[in-house]
Simulated assay, not measured.
Amino acid sequence: MIKLKRISLTKNSVVYKYLPWGEEDYGVISYDLASKQPKLIKDDNQNDSEYKGKALSKIKKYHKQGIFPEEGISIWK
């Protein structure tokens, strides 16, 4: 599970902080809304982490829906 917190939203990009459940460190992803290209701003420092992928997947889902909530979560098995 990860928690997402929106840091910024402009007409060109959105930036989210993602916090892996039970971990102290966090990551930050910027997503270009025009090109749909992500950029890792800060790594969560988890080796072989799927947290980055889950966070990006959730951000892409938000973009497809046209909404960017201030906070969100992603849960998987």
Rank of each mutant, 00 (worst) to 15 (best):
V15D: 07
S13D: 15
S30V: 01
D25S: 12
S57P: 03
Q37H: 11
G66C: 12
P20V: 09
L19W: 01
I41W: 03
K64R: 13
E71D: 06
G72N: 02
Y26Q: 07
K11W: 04
Q37G: 05
G53V: 01
L33C: 00
S13N: 14
K60A: 15
I59K: 00
S35P: 14
D25Q: 07
L56S: 10
I2M: 03
S74F: 07
Y18N: 10
I67K: 05
D43Y: 09
L33D: 02
K39A: 06
S35F: 03
K42T: 12
Q65K: 15
K42S: 13
W76T: 14
D44R: 04
Y51F: 15
E70H: 03
Y31C: 05
Y26H: 13
N12Y: 08
E71I: 03
K5Y: 03
S35L: 14
I7H: 13
D48L: 14
E23K: 14
I75M: 12
E50G: 04
Y16P: 01
S35Y: 07
P69Y: 02
I41H: 10
L33P: 05
I29N: 04
D43M: 04
K11E: 14
I75V: 10
L19D: 04
K17G: 02
A55H: 00
Q37I: 15
A34C: 07
A55R: 06
K60G: 02
P69N: 04
L19H: 03
I73P: 00
P38M: 04
K17C: 07
E71Q: 12
Y26W: 13
K58C: 06
V15R: 14
L19E: 11
E70K: 14
E23P: 01
K61F: 14
K5Q: 11
I73F: 04
K64G: 03
L33T: 00
V14R: 02
D25I: 00
D48R: 14
D32K: 07
I29V: 08
Y18F: 15
K3V: 09
K64I: 06
K39P: 00
K61R: 09
H63G: 05
K60W: 04
E71R: 06
Q65F: 08
I2Q: 02
E50Y: 06
L9P: 02
K60L: 12
N45Q: 06
G53P: 00
W76M: 09
L9Q: 08
K54H: 12
R6K: 11
K39Y: 05
V14L: 02
Y18D: 01
V15T: 14
K54C: 07
G72D: 15
K39Q: 09
Q46M: 15
K60C: 11
I75N: 08
E23R: 14
P38E: 15
Y16H: 05
K52G: 10
I41P: 06
A55F: 00
G72H: 00
Q46K: 14
I73Y: 09
D44T: 04
D32S: 13
L19P: 01
K61T: 02
K17N: 10
S49I: 01
K39T: 07
I73D: 03
N45D: 08
W76Y: 11
K39H: 04
Y62V: 00
K42P: 04
K11N: 13
D48P: 02
I59V: 06
G66R: 07
P38F: 07
L19C: 05
D43F: 11
F68R: 01
A55T: 02
L33A: 00
Y31V: 09
L56K: 10
D44P: 00
G72V: 01
W21T: 13
G27C: 14
H63F: 05
G27M: 11
G66F: 08
L56Y: 05
